[in-house]
Computed example of a mutant assay.
Amino acid sequence: MTGFTRRGALGLMGGAASLPMLGTPALANTKLTVGALRFTSHAASFVAFERGYFTDEGLDVEFRFFEAAQPMAVAIASGDADYAVTAITGGLISLAEKGATKVIGGALSEEKGIDGQMILASNAAYEAGLTSPAQLDGKTFAVTQPGSSFHYMGSKIAGAEGASVSFKPLQKVGAIIGAMKSGQVDAWSIVPHIAKALAGAGAVQTIGQVADYIPDYQVTTVFTSAENAANERAKSEAFLRAFSRGAADFNAALVDKTAGDEAAEDMVKLIHKYVYTDREYEKAAPSIRNGAMRINANAALNMGSVEDQLGWFKSEGLIKDEITTETLVDSSYVDTM
């Protein structure tokens, strides 16, 4: 670090996340493209943008939206996006091995006592007896791509149950939803703002919780190009500070619910600008509230979970055995948990 640590700087924020930041004068109007999915789990970036936290840091941010995690990693490596939040995937790890990307923080996490990602069965599979993960043997499990977070979750769940499942890659979340509704695939796991909405509409059935199989799972990470991590420290630290302020606001409003009812309502309205934009607010609001999982304070990273994920990728032959956490993570930015 140069002159201070991010841990120390973010620690000063504590509960005073609303205090104005002085920013970095050298970064005035620095343009950034931030990759995101239209998920409640990406809310920290949306809050940082809408409440001016990026601007406070001298960052002029625009979003580029994706429909799956792996294409986002490719965009970071190619320079089509500067920072992003997504799950650890085989694609992200392979790009890190090539010296193209680095994880610099943590974002969404499974936490005991907070509704997290849910395991779903199609109605057809449920009626045929798939009423819990214990009946997954011989079933199909939807993933976007091989080596995606869906593949990791499905494999860990099936392994815990001693089940043999077939993974069906469908590329996009929207395609998976359609396949679940039509019974073309039997099972899937997804964040609660999607899972609860589908189950509540009777389109699928909830049969379990991911946290019961992967406790303290580091679902998503903050990452950037290796070039930014190594040579754009001021910019990367500024991004993380703004992102962390957004996460603090989100957690207070919708996870810990310490900010009050008005703040919660304001937060849901803010997120609705990006999530479920095709729905009227009254219909979108319950799903957004239902999707409120913990976003790690100060972008802290659960290294134990990262190591477990790397171990799984190796066991599946999806990455090389010599890849380590140092290959993937630039620990000079990271607060651990």
Rank of each mutant, 00 (worst) to 15 (best):
L198E: 15
L198D: 11
L198H: 13
A199S: 14
A199R: 10
A199T: 08
G200V: 12
G200K: 12
G200P: 10
G200S: 13
G200A: 12
G200H: 13
A201S: 15
A201K: 15
A201N: 15
G202V: 04
G202M: 05
A203W: 09
A203I: 08
A203M: 10
A203V: 09
A203N: 14
V204A: 03
V204W: 07
V204L: 08
Q205E: 10
Q205M: 01
T206Y: 01
T206N: 11
T206E: 15
I207H: 06
G208H: 10
G208T: 11
G208C: 13
Q209F: 14
Q209C: 07
Q209S: 15
Q209G: 02
V210C: 08
V210Q: 11
V210R: 06
V210G: 08
V210T: 13
A211D: 09
A211H: 08
D212E: 11
D212C: 02
Y213V: 03
Y213H: 10
Y213D: 04
Y213P: 01
I214W: 12
I214E: 13
P215I: 01
P215G: 01
D216V: 02
D216E: 15
Y217Q: 01
Y217W: 09
Y217F: 14
Q218G: 04
Q218Y: 04
V219G: 03
V219Q: 14
T220C: 12
T220G: 02
T220D: 14
T220S: 15
T220L: 09
T221Y: 10
T221N: 15
T221L: 09
T221K: 06
T221F: 09
T221A: 13
V222H: 03
V222Q: 03
F223G: 05
F223C: 07
F223A: 12
F223M: 15
T224W: 05
T224P: 03
T224R: 05
T224F: 04
S225M: 06
S225W: 09
S225F: 08
S225D: 04
S225A: 07
S225G: 13
A226F: 01
A226H: 01
A226W: 01
A226E: 08
A226K: 12
A226M: 00
A226Q: 07
E227N: 12
N228R: 14
N228M: 10
N228S: 09
N228Y: 10
